[in-house]
Design a protein around this nucleic acid. Structure first.
Lengths: 260, 260
DNA sequence: TAGTGGTCTAGACCACCCC
DNA sequence: GGGTGGTCTAGACCACTAG
């Protein structure tokens, strides 16, 4: 009999070791592990089996196990400590995404129903400030989209996007209404893959216009978030300013000391 | 002569391949690569040498090169595209941390001088709300620290921390004043290593008290950030509420689609 | 089709934590 | 001392991109 640390249970190895789709092994393994932990089999801060044991159970190399663990660590599902072991993360951590989701995703994750009301879509000439952010010449045509964002039919935010689309690209109001998500549309229609965004968050008083649209009093404190979105080629694609009513909050999880 | 893609230049391999300290090889390599890129030898969006070539140049395995690249990718220094290559990131990305820094670090990074004025340090009994967040019984003694945060001698924020310290731990005002950073003190004095934090960001109107302390008018919109900080054992250590004047902004970089 | 990054393996040794 | 995660290697093959 092995004299090693007992982890709560062995994880069922699914007969055929891992496979189900053609996704990389380590992703399939991560999926399996995550499901196993979400089903509550391993209590928060309780250890998983050791990496070497997982490798044997699932008939993969230890390196593949480690890749799966790194992925779940990013998702906040578990964490590893040198010399101690790998542990299930507390629920509070697991529930919080490390990445700011799109409005739609974020709302869904909160258990709400996302919605939008398109206020306007028009072609405008870039002013100097926005041209500089998007790395284009001033007066280049941009598509400006103004939207109200709804959560469970209540107005929570106001988005003002400036898109730098490829030459001749056209975007219809109907398409956006149908897609629901602007980024979904960029991917599907133009093969533009958002990869990274630079954000700046602050507080601002609602202008008369803002107040009217958001249904709050003028001067109400709003959460304002500016974003420059980059494509996979790191070209600036979109500048967006978002204003949210005080009841709306950004939530995020941060690894404090990940940097070397 | 090799007929492969030309990267702008080969990277000087530092005679003795990499070593200088006893840090892991991949970290040393990352450091070398980062310095080389920050010196502007590779223009934004220009390719680095291929992983296999870097491995040969630096006399390390390809896997070690890949680990260094992953690290620099997290720091926003470069990015890799499957089948295309590895590229220097645009300056705008490189400058933005993916991790919310502590106030001191953040201020330094912006080129400012961080400061603090301790308003009060006292032992208080946990109320139900805070007890619940910190996973302690109500009425457990906590240390409450209220501080003004300064940037270049100007008041920009108000922090209100509740610390759950180990039994009998004592914290003197002088120590905190000397250390400058609360987290630095936790590490050095109590071996408490902050590892992760859960944050919630919103907007709020300045109360009369807030306004007085921050030197703004009552009702001024403030950026408010609540945080629960976890130790390396994932025990909640601190609850902190931070309020910032409108001129102060959080900046961060987000990998939009890192999740699977 | 050639070159690139992405995945996977099997094994070795080191660094750390705890009994 | 014995178990754990962390680093490192050398080599193989796959998947994607581009000329």
């Amino acid at each position: 009999m092995r004299t090693k640390r007992q982890s709560s249970e062995t994880i069922p190895t699914n007969q055929n070791p891992v496979e189900k789709s053609s996704a990389p092994l380590y992703r399939q393994l991560a999926e399996t592990l995550q499901l196993h932990m979400e089903s509550g089999k391993i209590a928060p801060n309780e250890p998983l089996p050791a990496e070497r044991d997982l490798a044997i159970s699932f008939k993969v190399s230890r390196d593949t196990v480690r890749k799966a663990i790194r992925l779940l660590e990013e998702r906040g599902v578990l964490y590893s400590d040198h010399g101690r072991g790998t542990f299930a993360a507390p629920a509070a951590v697991r529930q919080m995404s490390r990445f700011l989701d799109s409005f739609s995703e974020d709302t869904l994750k909160r258990g709400g129903t996302p919605g939008q009301k398109i206020l306007s879509m028009e072609n405008v000439a870039a002013n100097m400030a926005i041209a500089s952010l998007l790395h284009v010449e001033a007066h280049v045509p941009l598509m400006r989209i103004r939207r109200l964002r709804l959560m469970d039919d209540a107005v929570v935010g106001l988005q003002d996007s400036y898109l730098h689309l490829p030459q001749g690209a056209r975007l219809e109001r109907k398409e956006l209404e149908r897609a629901g998500s602007l980024y979904r549309l960029l991917i599907d229609k133009f093969s533009i893959e958002p990869s990274e965004s630079l954000e700046s968050v602050g507080a601002i008083a609602a202008s008369a216009d803002d107040a009217l649209l958001l249904g709050v009093g003028p001067g109400t404190p709003l959460l304002v978030c500016e974003r420059v979105m980059l494509s996979d080629r790191r070209e600036p694609i979109e500048y967006c300013e978002m204003k949210y009513v005080p009841s709306y909050r950004y939530k995020t999880r941060i690894n404090k000391w990940s940097n070397g």
